[in-house]
Design a protein around this nucleic acid. Structure first.
Ligand SMILES: [Mn+2]
Ligand SMILES: [Mn+2]
Ligand SMILES: [Zn+2]
Ligand SMILES: [Zn+2]
Lengths: 135, 135
DNA sequence: TTTCAGTTTATAATAATTCTAAAGTAAAAA
DNA sequence: TTTTTACTTTAGAATTATTATAAACTGAAA
C-alpha cells in the first residue's frame, strides 16, 4: 500500500492527514496481512517505533474514525479491552484464552447448514462464529 | 425450584445462605425460564423488588461465585458491561443491537457442517455462534 | 457465652474509555 | 502570501465498570 492509499484511508474517514494520523494509518494499513490490536498495543507500538508524540485521545479518535468509515472492524472478546481488526471482510475467529490471541478464520472455512430464522420483524445482519481454544 | 434448591445452589457455590444471597439466588434461579442479565440490571431489580440492602460488592461477589460454581455463564457482548446467563447449557445467541437484547438459540438449532481444525497443539474448547440482528 | 470464620458494607483503587477546553496546525479565503 | 477558519492535538479531568480493602457485623460451633 502506497502513501497515496494512506491518504485515501484518512480522507475517506473524514480525517486530515496529520503526522499522527499518517503514522497510525501506516502502521495499520501499510502491510501485507491484516491483524488484530487493542488501543493499548497500538499505543505501545507508536511510542516505541515512531518519533512523534501521541495523546491517547488522538489514538482513540483516529481508530474510531477508521471504524466508522469501515476501514476497521471490532471483535468481541471476553475481557475488558476492545479488540480491533484490520480485516474487514466477513470472517470468524479462533480465540486462544491462554495467550489472548485472536486468529482469523476465512468465511469459506465455516459452513453452517442450519440456522434459526430471525425473530419477528428482525433480520439477520451477520453471523459470527467464535471458536475458543484450549491446550 | 424450591427453597431447598436455592440453598443447594448457594452451598454448592461455597456460600452461606445469608438474606442477600438468598434474594439473589431466588431471583436468578427460582423461575421457569432462563434469562440474561448484567450486574446493573440485577442490582436494579434487587433494590426495587426486595426490602433488603445490597452493597454492589456483594452482588459482584455472589454472581462470580455462582459463575465459578457453574451455575451461571458469561456471554460476550460488544460493549462495556458483562452479561451473565442463567442458561448454562451449550447454546448460541441472537443479539439485537437496537434493544441490547440477547435471545437464546438452542444448540440443536444450529448445525455447522464445516469448521477448520484447531491450530497446532491446540484443541477446540467450544464454538459460539453469535447472530447479530437488524430491523 | 465466647469464639471465629465467613459476610456485608462503604469506600477507595484500578482500568478502559470518553470528555473538555485550551493551544496548535492545516487548509481555504482573501 | 497573509489572514482567517475550521479542524486537531493534547493534558488532564470525568465517567463507568469492576475489583480491592478493611472495618463492622452475623451466625453457627466450641
Ligand atoms: Mn468484548
Ligand atoms: Mn464483551
Ligand atoms: Zn479477524
Ligand atoms: Zn443465553
Amino acid at each position: 500500500m502506497k502513501k497515496v492509499d494512506i491518504f485515501k484511508k484518512l480522507r475517506s474517514s473524514g480525517l486530515r492527514p496529520t503526522k499522527q494520523r499518517v503514522e497510525i494509518a501506516k502502521f495499520l494499513f501499510d502491510r501485507d496481512t491484516t491483524f488484530h490490536f487493542t488501543i493499548d498495543s497500538l499505543e505501545n507500538h507508536l511510542t516505541k517505533k515512531t518519533t512523534c508524540k501521541f495523546a491517547l485521545a488522538t489514538i482513540y479518535n483516529t481508530v474510531h474514525a477508521f471504524k466508522k468509515a469501515g476501514h476497521l472492524s471490532e471483535v468481541d472478546v471476553r475481557g475488558k479491552k476492545t479488540y480491533f481488526d484490520t480485516n474487514i471482510t466477513n470472517h470468524h475467529h479462533f480465540y486462544d484464552n491462554e495467550t489472548s490471541e485472536l486468529i482469523d478464520i476465512d468465511a469459506s472455512e465455516v459452513v453452517i447448514q442450519k440456522i434459526p430464522k430471525a425473530p419477528n420483524g428482525k433480520k439477520i445482519k451477520n453471523v459470527e462464529v467464535f471458536i475458543n481454544l484450549k491446550n
